[in-house]
Amino acid sequence: MSFFLILMPFFMVHSKTYQKVSVDKLNASSSLNQANSGEFFPHNILNENSNPWIEGKSSDGIGEYVDMHFTTSFRFNRISIINGFNDKIKFKKYN
């Protein structure tokens, strides 16, 4: 019993191990380029606490896209997406 209790934290940690994959290429059909600052390029979507990717067309953005190429394949059955600005000040600035 004590042996099991010692090993239990080990199994608990390993049951939550994340799968790790790498992005080979990250392309967008267009990106908003404010004063050549590179602030809104597609790599932002992999980066915590950064600006978003914003399409760079003068139109409403329909048809614009982001492509993610991974070095290896993986499987998923849920996606969580945060769209928009996470920053109210920047949202007002660029909106």
């Binding site: 799968q19 990717w53 914003i54 399409e55 499987r75 998923f76 996606i79 969580s80 600005f85 909106n95």
Partner: peptide
């Protein structure tokens, strides 16, 4: 608003 045409974060789950 601007929100519908920008993407902040994408996370995949299995």
């Amino acid at each position: 608003s601007f929100n519908s045409t920008c993407l902040s974060k994408v996370v995949f789950f299995l």
